[in-house]
Each structure stands twice: as C-alpha cells, then as structure tokens.
C-alpha cells in the first residue's frame, strides 16, 4: 500500500497528464461521432453570446455586400411574382409542408476539418435538431445542437455531414460528403457508372431525406472520376454558396416530419 502511494506520488504529474489527455481524447472521439457529442459547443449560451456580440460589430463592415445579396434575392422573387399567373403571392407558412425561419449566422468556420456554424435562433424560436439550413443560393447544413437562443449547424463542409442529393436532369441520387480539401467543393458519391452526365450539370437535394425539400440547389459538377472498384462515380461538386460569406440564412422545418417518422417506425 505504502509503495503504491509512493508510486502515485512520485508519478503524479504523469498520471494527471494521462487523465487529462484521456479525457480530451474521449471528447474528441465523441465529437467525431454524430450522435454522441454531448457538449453544446458554440451553441452554448455563453460562447454563443460572445460570438454574437463580436459578430454584430463585424457585421458593419460588410453591410453593403449583404444588402446587395438580399436585394438580388428580392429582385428574383419580385420577378417570379410578376411572371406568375396567380395575381397575389402565395401566403407563406400556411398550409404548406415546409416552414422557413430567418436567422443570422453569428459564427462561421469553413477552413477547419470539421466546420460548424452558429446561428442566432434556438429552442425559443422552435428550432430543433435535424432542421435544414439554406440560403437563397443553396444548402448550408443541418442543425445538430440547440440551446434556448442559439443553434449549431453542421456545415456541408464537415466530414460528418451526409446529405442525400441527385443529378437534376436524370434524378439519379447519391450521398453528398466532404473530403476536407477545398472549401468550395464537396463530393457526391454512389452514382452508378451507367449514368450519363457532364461537367456543369446541376446537383440538387433529392427530397428523400426528411430534412430538405426536393430541388434545393447545391452546386454544379466540376469534375468526376470512378472509385477504386470502378463501378461508382465520385463527383466533385462546386457549391453555389460562398461558404465564407454567409450571413442571412433560412431554417427549414418539415411540418410533416412527425407523420413521416411515425410511418417509418411502423415499417420497422
């Protein structure tokens, strides 16, 4: 007993090091696992509000640019409205399958191997996990943590992100993932080698997942190659969204989600 105590006392700094290193390693491994990360991270009240405070100062520097983006979007909607046959725009958020909530990005990262965004809407605004996040240009990611005022979004630029996507023309679908290399290119896997497509074709969401509606733009094919077994394509997709410049985003809530989930659970 005495010897054991002596041993512990003698090596106390090494043991403390092992304990702390082990703890942080566990946290890291858990953070790489989609459903196991427990900490709220940047969506936490304290970290969220510090990010929020400073991003609201930084926002003044690109007000002009953000205005131009919103103006462009307004212009597009106006054009749709004028050219549509129905005289009044359809009332939003009533009798539809999807409900949109506007949100501001308070923290954005796009250069790290695992990218997350933090937005300024949370439980309080009925934002829940597994809601999709988009901009007028295309998809941004999926929410994975919420606190009362903030939510964390797993960006499409994250190795954890897996989104169902398809070729717009031929409706062949695959999985959208990211290999961590470039912040404006993601990869579409599992497209069969029989499928015809060419560089420049548009990739959109497939609508098979319950998170995103069908036909939300993602990007265009920039290059493609066959995988190691030569039967499936790996397609590089250049994103429509400039991930480095995100400010105004929409959170998509699928109002039929509960119904769809109960159907699926009945099947099992």
């Amino acid at each position: 007993m005495q010897q054991l105590l002596n041993f512990i006392f003698k090596n106390r700094s090494f043991l403390l090091f092992l304990v702390l290193f082990g703890a942080s390693l566990t946290l890291t491994i858990r953070s790489h696992d989609y459903h196991k990360s427990q900490f709220l991270g940047s969506a936490n009240q304290i970290t969220g509000s510090i990010h929020h405070l400073f991003s609201s100062i930084g926002d003044y520097f690109n007000l002009k640019e953000q205005n131009a983006i919103l103006f462009e979007e307004n212009n597009r909607l106006k054009q749709l409205e004028l050219n549509s046959l129905t005289p009044t725009p359809l009332p939003l958020n009533t009798g539809h399958q999807y409900k949109l909530t506007p949100a501001l990005v308070v923290k954005n990262s796009y250069k790290s191997p695992q990218n997350y965004l933090t937005i300024n809407k949370g439980n309080r605004d009925n934002i829940k996990v597994e809601f999709g996040v988009v901009t007028p240009n295309g998809i941004v990611g999926v929410i994975d943590k919420t606190s009362s005022k903030y939510a964390r979004v797993v960006s499409v630029l994250n190795a954890k992100s897996k989104i169902n996507a398809k070729l717009k023309q031929s409706n062949h679908f695959g999985t959208l993932e990211w290999n961590g290399k470039s912040s404006n290119t993601v990869q579409l896997y599992d497209i069969q080698d029989l499928v015809n497509f060419s560089v420049g074709d548009t990739i959109v969401t497939s609508g098979y997942s319950m998170i995103f509606p069908e036909n939300i733009p993602i990007g265009t094919v920039s290059s493609y190659r066959l995988n190691d077994t030569k039967d499936l394509y790996i397609i590089d997709v250049k994103l429509f969204n400039d991930m480095s410049n995100l400010k105004h985003v929409h959170v998509i809530e699928n109002l039929d989600l509960k119904e769809l989930e109960s159907l699926n659970s009945n099947n099992e």
């Binding site: 703890a23 942080s24 390693l25 566990t26 946290l27 890291t28 491994i29 858990r30 953070s31 790489h32 990360s37 900490f39 991270g41 940047s42 936490n44 970290t47 510090i50 990010h51 990262s109 790290s112 695992q114 997350y116 964390r152």
Partner: peptide, 8 residues
C-alpha cells in the same frame, strides 16, 4: 474547444 466546436 468549446468556442471552436472541436471536441477535445
């Protein structure tokens, strides 16, 4: 880690 969402 908490600020940058990097686990540990």
């Amino acid at each position: 880690d908490y600020f940058l969402d990097t686990g540990g």
